[in-house]
Write a protein that binds this DNA or RNA. Structure first.
Length: 480
RNA sequence: GGCGCUAUCGUCUAGGGGACUAGGACGGGGCCCUCUCAAGGCCCAAACACGGGUUCGAAUCCCGUUAGCGCUACCA
């Protein structure tokens, strides 16, 4: 039995969005699982909208996700000659015909059909043009397209994810396969290329289901067995509508910028519409490959849940050694224009357990480098309001006591002992002393243990911040 | 309008005739741990769209209804 050959075939008319990335991931997983070949083909036949920049972004996105291709990238545009000769062959064999209808005429017909509330279908007025007339109009330089003759018979296939799907040929148009400028229309180009590249499994988005019968008809007309088709469901936004720009981040690059780790993104995407059939969530790459199957792909569309993505990222983040985080965090700090005058390793270490993204790590490191950056978040603000004047009182109690610690003895242990003493002397719970300090230094009620926080921030910076905190930490309306 | 696809907790899903008192995960709530925050552990709330069949028995098979989505170009 021959090894499967699959392909990912994006059109470079936009960025690599998460839906495309997942399709690529499934193709890659299938190839790796079966020992087959993953080919990458850029469908650039839409000259108007295709750009090299988009191609580059797509390739970068795939590389970032760790999705490899074994062949390509091929460019569909390079095969134009083949497409054209396939179309002409169908014409010669009487499986297609010249159509001289202009776009204006067709648009008008469509508009009429729509106005009448009936379905539009090309009326085949050019189907039976006398050969002599065709010849003459061609010679006269009249522009024409080539249309494929759809038969009336049923066209059905066993979809690898949906099971049997069938269409009636009579519901389908005689569709155009070659434009008047001799370039191929998508459906022909795809079939031509998939035949040439000996593709055995076409794994693509659900939105191609209605193209499939047309493509199967083309395979047959061209004398080839159609491949196995597997249509993976769409990805939806939180409102249940197809994921699009108005839902926020939809490009793979957006998540890269937000500090999502490629391994987490890949894991999350894999589980969106696919399940290994066990109660597994965190799947290392080799496990994913081992467990992957087309049958495990869900039939219904899935909603993209950013919160779960972030949770998963947090899982991966906590597995990473601090060293691996240094570079991305530094890069992020650079982007935030933070001056880094010291070793951030202890800061990263201190902060990473409570973070879900690199961006989040960087933000917290930035605040520890310079507590003046701290802004009250909603919980910090709530605490301050709740404690009232006691907040400031306890803060200055802590500050005065901490001042007695000599620089050489500024250690987590020593700080803890001191704060405990403050609480005890004033008959306060430890939290009543700790929380104001935490909020003063970070703006938030969540951080590493307060004594460690004071330690990593450093004595001088901590003391200065605590003194100025009461004026600085004004409740703001733009807290999140 | 036509054609097609789909339908299990709020979300991602397990389930493919009896093992279902419908399992796991995210999110939510609670408890434990902690003289402070998380993490972690434990617990709780939360779903088979509706109506008909088939069957001794249906989340699972069939039909219909409803809803959502996709396609309906000389776009891909």
């Amino acid at each position: 039995m021959t090894k499967p050959r699959v392909r990912f075939a994006p059109s470079p008319t936009g960025y690599l969005h998460v839906g495309g990335a997942r399709t690529a991931l499934f193709n890659w997983l299938y190839a790796r699982h079966t020992g087959g070949t993953h080919v990458l083909r850029i469908e650039d036949t839409d000259r108007e909208r295709s750009t090299e920049e988009h191609t580059r972004v797509i390739l970068d996105g795939l590389r970032w996700l760790g999705i490899e291709w074994d062949e390509g990238p091929y460019f569909q545009g390079a095969n134009a000659t083949q497409h054209q000769s396939d179309a002409e062959r169908l014409l010669r064999e009487g499986k297609a015909y010249r159509c001289f209808c202009t776009r204006e005429e067709l648009d008008a017909q469509r508009a009429r059909a729509e106005a009448a509330g009936v379905g539009y279908r090309y009326d085949r007025r050019c189907l039976n043009l006398p050969p002599a007339e065709v010849e003459q109009r061609l010679r006269g330089g009249e522009p024409s397209t080539i249309r494929f003759i759809m038969g009336d018979q049923e066209i059905a296939w066993d979809d690898a994810v949906h099971g049997r799907i069938s269409f009636q040929g009579r519901d389908l148009d005689d569709f155009v396969i070659l434009r008047s400028d001799n370039s191929a229309i998508y459906n022909l180009a795809v079939v031509s290329d998939d035949i040439a590249m000996r593709i055995t499994h076409v794994i693509r988005g659900d939105d191609h289901i209605s193209n499939t019968p047309k493509q199967i008809a083309l395979y047959r007309a061209l004398g080839h067995e159609p491949p196995v088709f597997g249509h993976v469901p769409m990805i939806l936004g939180p409102d249940g509508k197809k994921l699009s720009k108005r839902h926020g981040a939809t490009a793979v690059g957006d998540y890269q910028n937000e500090g999502i780790l490629p391994a987490a993104m890949r894991n999350f995407l894999a589980l969106l519409g696919w399940s290994p059939g066990e109660d597994r969530e965190i799947l290392p790459e080799d496990e994913m490959i081992r467990l992957f199957s087309l049958e495990g792909i869900q039939k219904k569309p899935a909603v993209f849940d950013t919160t779960k993505l972030e949770w998963m990222n947090g899982q991966y983040l906590s597995l990473l050694p601090v060293e691996a985080l240094l570079e991305p965090v530094l890069r992020e700090l650079g982007r935030m224009n933070v001056v880094v005058g010291r070793d951030i390793r202890p800061l990263v270490k201190s902060v990473v357990a409570r973070s879900r993204t690199i961006l989040h790590v960087a933000e917290q490191v930035a605040v520890r480098l310079d507590p003046n950056r701290a802004k009250l978040d909603s919980k910090g603000e709530a605490l301050r309001l709740k404690m009232g004047p006691v907040f400031d009182e306890n803060l200055s109690r802590a500050q005065r006591a901490l001042e007695y610690i000599p620089p050489a003895e500024w250690t987590p242990d020593h700080i803890l002992t001191t704060l405990k003493a403050v609480a005890e002397e004033n008959h306060l719970k430890l939290g009543d002393v700790m929380q104001p300090v935490r909020v003063a230094l970070t703006g938030s009620t969540v951080s590493e243990p307060v004594n460690e926080l004071l330690y990593v921030v450093g004595r001088e910076s901590s003391m200065k911040t605590l003194k100025t905190a009461p004026h600085r930490l004004q409740p703001s309306s733009n807290s999140k």
